[in-house]
């Protein structure tokens, strides 16, 4: 089993993802430079958070054209695992690996805080260690994390249970105050049709050790590691 963390210029959560995989989850992990054209040998690739290429045009808009992304697309097309966290999620949407888009937060400001997430589908490679309806406390840190999609896409996401996590309050209710960025239907993270690609705005790598205020994020890493081990 080998994880790879892609480093785009301007990625800034690459090291956090790397450390959590190496030091907390204790699995093999390597960095992947953005100019690399092959990602052979990696079982799961992480597109980390940050501001790839400065994100001056539109979040993730430039990163999708970087050399590594062609290889990453192939990796996903072959059914291998790919997760995008925060800016990584934005890149996945920009490159069409996931539907919909992430736009400026309602309220227009960057928001960094702990939020609650409800696991909507625990029968996936990314959530198999969680219980359905389990509530996770994980931080967000983004200015453009409001998930939007057309009605048809939303119906499809809901129908095929591709919404993996949604923002909620501490009791798991979808109150207006519990949606930190105005995402449609409180969507925090979604998977592709084959569930091998997962994107989410919250940062599980920032909530994988108790000393950081929560270790709830570990369950997502534990799930994919279990999936890889059993696969």
């Amino acid at each position: 089993m080998k994880f790879g963390v892609v480093q785009f210029p301007g990625s800034n959560c690459d090291q956090d993802a790397y450390f959590v995989l190496r030091d907390v989850m204790r699995v093999p992990v390597e960095y992947i430079w953005h100019q690399t054209t092959s990602v052979k040998g990696f079982d799961c690739i992480v597109l980390p958070g940050g501001f790839s290429y400065g994100d001056y045009l539109r979040t993730g808009a430039i990163a999708r054209f970087s050399p590594v992304m062609e290889a990453v697309q192939e990796h996903a097309a072959r059914g291998k695992y790919l997760i995008g966290i925060c800016n990584g999620f934005q890149i996945l949407c920009e490159s069409g690996l996931l539907p919909g888009a992430l736009v400026r937060n309602e309220g227009l400001k960057f928001v960094c805080k702990f939020v609650h997430l409800r696991v909507e589908n625990s029968d996936t490679p990314w959530t198999c260690e969680a219980k359905e309806g389990q509530i996770l406390r994980i931080p967000i840190a983004h200015g453009e994390g409001r998930y939007v999609a057309d009605e048809e896409t939303l119906a499809e996401l809901t129908g095929s249970r591709r919404i993996l996590v949604r923002y909620c309050d501490a009791e798991g209710r979808y109150t207006p105050g519990s949606n930190p960025n105005g995402s449609v239907n409180h969507i925090a993270g979604i998977a592709n049709e084959t569930f091998n690609v997962f994107g989410l705005m919250p940062h599980p790598e920032r909530a994988s050790e108790k000393i950081l205020g929560s270790a709830d994020g570990r369950i997502l890493f534990e799930s994919i590691i279990k999936t890889l081990r059993s696969g």
Partner: peptide, 16 residues
């Protein structure tokens, strides 16, 4: 103010 700042990146912040 502080919510507009990323106070957690680098995963070393123990007291926010």
């Amino acid at each position: 103010v502080t919510q507009q700042y990323d106070s957690m990146v680098q995963t070393q912040t123990v007291l926010n």
